[in-house]
Amino acid sequence: MDLSSLNFFKSLRSDNKQYGVIGLGRFGRSVCSTLTGLGFEVFGADNDDERVAQIISERLAAHCVKIDSTNPHALREAGLLDLDTVVIAIGNYLEESIITTLNVKEAGVKHVVAKASSEVHGTLLKKVGADLVVYPEAETGAALARSLTQPGIIDRFELDPDNSIVEVMVPNEFHGKTIIELELRRKYGINVLAVSRDEKFEINPEPTYRLCRGTAMVVIGNNKDISRLTAVCSSKQNEKVV
């Protein structure tokens, strides 16, 4: 996600309780499971009997039907076109993905999120009306590559091309020292947003908070500054603790 997505998220209704998910592969299934777990009513749809049956048996959606999503009448009968937000999770079948997105948007669904498998696919989805295009495989691949090359980083969220929020392991060098003693803002140009404690995170820790090896901290800053910090985290994790 980046700043260009802000308008989309600002336009979402805070009182929306119903979501549609078309395409119940791994990505669509994950969307259904998470939304249902958060207490929202999910309308699922797929053209595969087995996927629909699995979603129903595991109760990952309040409603789930087998339909041909390239047929606007089928979408209407399933109730998917009456929803405020619909996720098109068909990424691997370009024609079906594009036609479904077009059908949903032309029917007046206000918020349409579509999964793309390539930049060309994403461009076409935007041209037929998708309000937000996501690239889960590309994002996962990029995250894995960063983790492999920067083992000090546990997780990362890019705010824009130059700035990120990252979760890193506390290096041995920082053990027992307070945030203010480490002068992280002066030395590394980063700010600490949270620290892990008893399997939970403490948000906005006090400057006097003492860091502990084997735990994690969440920091925000410029990517170049974060790289300098993670270099320390990575190298220090490999040293023996005396």
Results as ranks from 00 to 15, higher is better:
60 L>R: 09
230 T>R: 04
198 D>K: 11
142 A>Y: 05
12 L>H: 08
230 T>E: 14
135 Y>D: 05
24 L>R: 02
207 P>T: 07
24 L>K: 03
62 A>D: 14
150 Q>M: 11
103 N>V: 10
182 L>H: 04
146 R>I: 14
141 G>Y: 06
53 A>I: 13
215 T>V: 02
62 A>R: 13
54 Q>R: 12
23 G>P: 00
212 C>W: 05
105 K>E: 09
31 V>P: 00
65 V>C: 12
25 G>D: 11
74 A>C: 10
223 N>I: 10
214 G>D: 07
85 T>F: 09
30 S>T: 15
203 I>V: 15
113 V>R: 00
222 N>R: 06
168 V>E: 04
10 K>T: 04
180 I>T: 08
15 D>A: 09
106 E>G: 00
14 S>R: 12
157 F>P: 03
179 I>E: 03
60 L>G: 01
147 S>P: 06
34 T>Q: 11
34 T>K: 12
179 I>G: 05
72 P>W: 08
207 P>S: 04
8 F>L: 02
189 G>F: 07
149 T>P: 03
41 E>T: 15
125 L>T: 02
155 D>L: 08
174 F>K: 01
97 S>V: 08
196 S>Y: 11
219 V>T: 03
114 A>F: 09
125 L>M: 03
188 Y>K: 07
17 K>W: 05
135 Y>R: 06
112 V>G: 03
229 L>P: 04
144 L>N: 04
42 V>L: 09
164 S>L: 01
37 G>D: 10
49 D>E: 15
40 F>M: 09
204 N>S: 15
50 E>N: 14
174 F>A: 01
145 A>N: 03
111 H>V: 05
107 A>Y: 12
55 I>R: 07
158 E>G: 02
120 V>C: 00
29 R>C: 04
185 R>G: 01
146 R>P: 00
